[in-house]
Amino acid sequence: MKTRTALLQKKAALPALCYLVAAVGWLAVSTWNFGADMAAKANGTLREQPLAVSDFALADLEVTGTDSGGATLLETTSNDPQMILEDVSAQTVRTVQLYVRYTGTVREMCLYYTTAPGQDYSQDRRVFPALQPDGSYLYTLPRTRLVALRLDPCSPEEGKTVAMAVETILLNRPVAPAGYFVPSWYQLFCLALYPGLAAALLSWLGAAAALLPRKR
């Protein structure tokens, strides 16, 4: 008892507590996400799903054939080509992985999403790809309700075309359990900053409260 009180009275107790709460909170949220995804897998809404180009509605993209390896060959016809999945609301989509080879200057690639039917695409609702070691591009979507997905596979310069050889587009690639628990760089930054800030705030509130009654 004495040791515990002595521990709690150490100046570092509050920050240590806040970081502990943050770590536990992170574990809890990650476990919840993991559990939710396991449940979705069990009832079939979250499944690894390879898609072909033909599953998408194409805008400003022309199919020019298939290559020897079976990849669909596409060519852009404007500087804003799009591949659209109109309605994915019946399923859970966590990631979109694009296996593609480009010829030409690709420039910007991104994946737009909407969270309600009829909603406009917005630059606030888009994610950018992470280049994978195998050369594919992985888009990780936020854990919200998703209705439509619009893939902008490239943004050719004015008057130029980009040729693409799309092998497959994989929804919901398998994620190892550990993947749920590893924070992104930005999340790591937040986990470093915000618990400390919370501890500072709580400490301040405590000091202010200690001061107030005696003034009266």
């Binding site: 420039r107 991104c110 790809p129």
Partner: peptide, 16 residues
Amino acid sequence: LPQLSVLGFSDGEFSD
């Protein structure tokens, strides 16, 4: 947005 800042920029930013 984090994905447009130093803490979360995409690899694609520098692909060109």
